[in-house]
Amino acid sequence: MIIHYYYFGVPIPSLTHEKQAVEIPSGTTIDQLMKVIGETIEDSASEFLNKASFLVNKMGAKREAVLKDGDEVVILYPIGGG
């Protein structure tokens, strides 16, 4: 299945708002998706994926949530405000 994702508000230049797509097996959770994505970015940037929070189709979602074909995942920096 195809999942669309992008980063939002992450203070790491390489992790941008540009929407990307990834093909993953059905039944994949957000946590498993983060492991797949983590392989594609530099180590220092991938650390934050362990703490990120998520929106799936504009709703909040936990790491254990199972994704469906066509879902849109927004990966948010975990630190709130200032």
């Binding site: 939002f8 508000g9 929106l55 948010l76 920096y77 709130g80 405000g81 200032g82």
Partner: peptide, 11 residues
């Protein structure tokens, strides 16, 4: 601190 304002509004 304003660097986080947009993401905080979404999260």
């Amino acid at each position: 601190t304003g660097s986080t304002t947009p993401a905080s509004a979404l999260s």
